[in-house]
Design a protein around this nucleic acid. Structure first.
Length: 300
RNA sequence: AUAGGAAUAGUUCAACUGGUAGAACUACGGUCUCCAACAUCGUCAAUUAAGGUUCAAAUCCUUAUUCCUAUG
């Protein structure tokens, strides 16, 4: 059965297919095939393939794959550049609208759940990071006492968000406070506003229908393949050039090698840990997508 | 073979003088609308075996099994 037959949705809006799922599940292949059937292009929804110079470890589509279908929103951000879901949302919506204007519908493909939600649910993001406020809050969060105070503060200014965030989840507490302090309105209010907006298209979500065991096997094989393709050199080059603490270098497939470079770990052990971390990641992705009833498993 | 030591969750370790067997990692299940390949919460799971002493045994005693160290 052709993939495009899954898109028979009665809707007065254009139907945009989303290919989602855990890492190593074959999303790229599926998206390319669908893009060819529809004679269109692909917009990636992957928070790590956006970075330049990180090709092997993020399993970015190869040159050859990119020739079969053009990919957008990959390979365009410097590893030391700030980029977040708010940026992604803006970039992706701009692109989608361009396609729609030409009566084309792109294929969205990626495993970053938040990015998928940002485009497939009526979310909105108000680009409002404030590095100074954040730094101040982060400084305060270094002590146990400070953490408690920050959470208390959030309970005061934005009880709805505070209720949803566990007190130990300091990163989220800080972010919610940062939003309140830089915009003057609580995060929960902004979230509600976002919900009122409507999408100008109908998303149809597809995922490759594989068992976890199959996914785990594919992960183990793919890691070995990445090593053969020169992953170690790729990571070493980045390590020589950039700060290890960058978000980009905290990606799976990169951070695992630092101990090996420091001679604290054998290569064999590093590979074992890399496979393990990738499996964990896939598990979290499965958890994320499992609760979304819209997703249709495709035997492909 | 002899002498000493050890045996606790899938793994590595903890448990005072005999007094509620804990933790980390793994595995599994969740949360997540602003760094999301991030961050964060939870669940399952064990005293090597068989006997004995005791109100009470991972802890003391006996036997067996396995492992470690030294000697040969």
């Amino acid at each position: 059965m052709k993939l495009k037959n899954y898109l028979n949705e009665s809707s007065d809006k254009p139907v945009i297919p989303f290919i989602v799922g855990p890492t190593a599940s074959g999303k790229t292949d599926m998206a390319i095939e669908l893009a060819q059937e529809l004679n269109t292009e692909i917009i990636s929804a992957d928070s790590m393939q956006i970075y330049k110079y990180m090709d092997i470890g993020t399993a970015k589509p190869t040159k050859e794959e990119q020739q079969r279908a053009k990919h957008h929103l990959i390979d365009f951000v410097e590893p030391d550049q700030n980029y977040s879901v708010a940026n992604y949302y803006k970039d992706a919506i701009t692109l989608i609208n361009k396609f729609l204007e030409q009566n084309k519908t792109p294929v969205i493909c990626g495993g970053t759940g938040l990015y998928i939600n940002a485009l497939s649910l009526p979310y909105s993001f108000s680009n409002n990071t404030n590095p100074e406020i954040r730094k101040e809050l982060e400084k305060k969060s270094l002590t146990e006492e400070g953490k408690k105070q920050l959470y208390q503060e959030l309970l005061q200014v934005d009880p709805q968000s505070a209720e949803k965030i566990h007190p130990n989840n300091i990163k989220r507490v800080i972010r919610a406070l940062e939003i309140y302090k830089s915009t003057g309105s609580p995060k929960s209010e902004l979230d509600k506003k976002g919900r009122k907006q409507e999408l100008s298209y109908t998303p149809v979500l597809l995922t490759p229908d594989l068992t976890r065991e199959t996914i785990y096997n594919r992960i183990n094989l793919r890691v070995d393949k990445m090593i053969n393709q020169g992953l170690i050199d790729e990571v070493r080059a980045l390590d020589n050039r950039y700060d290890r603490n960058l978000i980009s270098l905290q990606a799976i497939g990169y951070k695992e090698f630092f101990n090996y470079f420091d001679n604290k770990q054998t290569l064999e052990e590093t590979i074992r840990i890399l496979k393990r971390d990738t499996r964990h990641f896939a598990k979290r992705q499965l958890t994320w997508f499992r609760k979304d009833p819209r997703i249709i498993p495709v035997n492909y």
